[in-house]
């Protein structure tokens, strides 16, 4: 699974992207977030406030309950500010 981070979330995590292999019981976005946070610093505090973190799976907006699969590209980012 390929994870991408953008804007201040990228700065907090310290990398723009990484490949991870969460255990099989990580089945949705919420589970993936919990698993990432459990890895410790900087992940444990990078995703605050949780309500501000948007997620996209394979470049389509997703929700906390959206399923994730091995091979997905999952992106986490703050609210968008273009235009």
């Amino acid at each position: 699974m390929h994870i991408r981070y953008f804007a201040w979330l990228r700065q907090r995590v310290g990398v723009a992207e990484e490949t991870v292999a969460p255990p099989a019981e990580v089945g949705d976005v919420a589970g993936l977030l919990a698993w990432l946070k459990a890895r410790g610093a900087p992940y444990d505090t990078a995703f605050e406030p949780d309500a501000a973190i948007r997620v996209a799976i394979n470049q389509v907006y997703a929700r906390r309950e959206t399923p994730v699969h091995a091979g997905d590209e999952v992106a986490f980012f703050p609210p968008v500010t273009g235009g």
Binding site: F6, A7, A56, Y61, A75, F77, P78, V80, T81, G82, G83
Partner: peptide, 14 residues
Amino acid sequence: LIDWLKTRAPFWKL
């Protein structure tokens, strides 16, 4: 188009 772009297109301003 501009209203939706501002809230949906993944851009971030620094």
